[in-house]
């Protein structure tokens, strides 16, 4: 690149360095120290913070909670999204309206969604309790978010409700890119619904769906807001994910250095996931 192009890029580069590079560098620097949130003496600790984190069994519990959240949420979003897309690909009256309605949950801000589901799960007057007692599935109202056994699943449900439309939307777009003549050819070739799906439709779905799922995995891995609003990581740490742990260490316990090191570990894992995502994108590019 010529000097001229570098000069033209310079303002943007400066801005990016300032808003992305500087906080990142600061986090890296802090993670090697015992810095407190409110200042005071700062000492260089080297890798001590990381050793402490990786040696603590509690950290692996948090990682496991995060993985469970990712697997359950993204798994359900994938299945529901795919089924919804297949349904909305059929011709029926009011299809346009249903398609538009389906996007609504996704358009809601996460905090609004979380608050709404907290009301739905409310142990005294929540709709969820009302529904389940009225149909006879449970005997008495429960605190879905207040019991360690159910809190994570309850949050997953709220997350799935909000995010499956994204998967559905992407899958629907992919379904509509399957040529009409190709489907007709498969019908004449004698392929039943399952064979048609597997041999004709799935090849068109697999690329976009992979992208959607990987994006959702990266996002779900970093989950913070929905959990913070609904349970703050409780009860009994049963919904504590890595992001919540970072927040607690850095802000609640004011251990900026320790929090920074956990955040950095999370960044590394995210970077690996993103590398996988980019590889998939590149492979798909090559196929075309």
């Amino acid at each position: 690149m010529s000097l001229r192009s570098w000069l033209l890029l310079a303002p943007l580069l400066a801005l990016m360095t300032f808003i992305i590079g500087w906080p990142l560098a600061k986090t890296v620097a802090v993670s090697f120290t015992d810095a407190k949130l409110l200042g005071g003496d700062v000492h260089w600790l080297g890798l001590a913070n990381f050793q402490r984190v990786l040696a603590a069994p509690a950290f692996y519990e948090v990682v496991w909670t995060t993985i469970r959240f990712v697997l359950i949420s993204v798994g359900a979003e994938f299945l529901l999204g795919l089924l919804a897309a297949l349904l909305l690909d059929q011709k029926f009256h009011g299809r346009g309206i249903v398609r538009a309605l389906m996007i609504l949950p996704w358009a809601l801000p996460t905090v609004v969604n979380a608050t709404m589901w907290r009301l739905i799960y409310n142990p005294d007057f929540g709709a969820f309790n009302a529904l389940f007692t009225q149909v006879g599935l449970i005997d008495a109202y429960r605190s879905w978010l207040g019991e360690p056994g159910s809190a994570l699943y309850a949050i997953c449900l709220a997350d799935v409700w909000k995010n499956f439309p994204l998967v559905a939307l992407i899958a629907l777009a992919a379904l509509q890119s399957v040529p009409r003549e190709l489907r007709a050819a498969a019908v004449i070739d004698g392929a039943g619904p399952w064979s048609r799906f597997r041999a004709v439709i799935l090849p068109y779905l697999i690329g976009p769906l992979t992208v959607a799922v990987v994006l959702r995995i990266i996002e779900a891995f970093k989950v913070f807001d929905i959990i913070w609003v609904m349970t703050r990581g409780g009860p009994a740490n049963s919904t504590k994910t890595i992001s919540i742990l970072v927040y607690q260490q850095a802000f609640s316990f004011q251990q900026a250095g320790l929090g920074g090191s956990i955040a950095l570990i999370m960044v590394l894992i995210s970077a690996l996931l993103i590398a996988g995502y980019v590889t998939i994108l590149r492979k798909q590019g090559e196929l075309k």
Binding site: E181, L182, A184, A185, A186, A199
Partner: peptide, 9 residues
């Protein structure tokens, strides 16, 4: 049937 777009898989 032979289609205009050939409709090969």
């Amino acid at each position: 049937m032979v289609f205009q777009s050939y409709a090969l898989y």
